[in-house]
């Protein structure tokens, strides 16, 4: 996993609540057995005017001019502003894969769905929860100012606006550490292999029927 430390990035606003993972990456692209290459199909049904299929040359497809991420001013955005319950629905990790492959590294919103939130951290994508009022203000500023950027500092747990205001955010210390260092969860867990074995032996003795 790529470490995440600090980012000074262009911001794009996606002003709708309950953006589900079917919208982030539609099911036909889940047939891939790879982990990469989902970016061109992120938000496929909103982004293009035709129906996308796996294996297409996406650069030749007609773009939907009404979709916010297609506006020239948001090209190259690395920070996505979202509304409530972003990432709800399916557990498909293809959703964070698609967002990351598109170029996003940070998501800022009032709330995220649990499984999506969890999946994001495994892919170097930082979802940040802020008060709804703070998010509202970021939407206002972003829409009013072309080229709107934010500086996200994970170590300091701050977001700095162009007007100089700094907003603090919360993150689990364990997740922060993993993201800062780009640590692989599995490697970390296997440091506890002896404890896992001991637990397993105990459980097998107490509840053999779970091991049949």
């Amino acid at each position: 996993m790529n470490p995440f430390t600090k980012l000074d990035g262009l911001v794009a606003p996606l002003d709708r609540a309950n953006v589900d993972t079917d919208a982030i990456i539609p099911k036909q692209f889940l047939k891939s057995i790879k982990r990469s290459g989902f970016g061109p199909n992120a938000f496929d049904e909103w982004r293009y005017l035709d129906v996308g299929q796996p294996g297409q040359d996406n650069s030749k497809r007609p773009l939907n001019p009404d979709f916010v991420l297609n506006q020239p001013r948001y090209q190259g955005a690395q920070i996505l502003l979202t509304r409530d319950n972003f990432g709800c629905g399916s557990s498909r990790e293809h959703a964070p894969w698609a967002l990351e492959d598109y170029g996003f590294r940070v998501l800022i919103g009032p709330s995220f769905a649990d499984i999506f939130f969890n999946n994001s951290f495994k892919n170097g994508l930082l979802p940040i929860k802020l008060d709804a009022a703070e998010v509202d203000e970021l939407f206002r500023q972003c829409e009013a100012n072309e080229g709107y950027r934010l500086v996200v500092d994970l170590a300091a747990q701050t977001i700095t606006r162009p007007d100089g205001r700094t907003i603090g955010f919360d993150i689990d210390p364990f997740r922060k550490e993993c993201l800062l260092n780009g640590w692989d969860d599995i490697g970390l867990t296997l440091r506890h292999a002896d404890k896992i074995k001991a637990y397993e032996e105990r459980r097998r003795a107490e509840h053999p029927y779970y091991f049949a």
Binding site: R35, S91, E93, T189, I196
Partner: peptide, 21 residues
């Protein structure tokens, strides 16, 4: 019982555990 992403599928295969709060 709950759903997990693919990184966690790999994690469970490799360690028989999940990191959870």
């Amino acid at each position: 019982a709950h759903g997990i992403g693919t990184s966690e599928v790999e994690h469970v295969m490799a360690t028989q555990c999940l990191l959870q709060k």
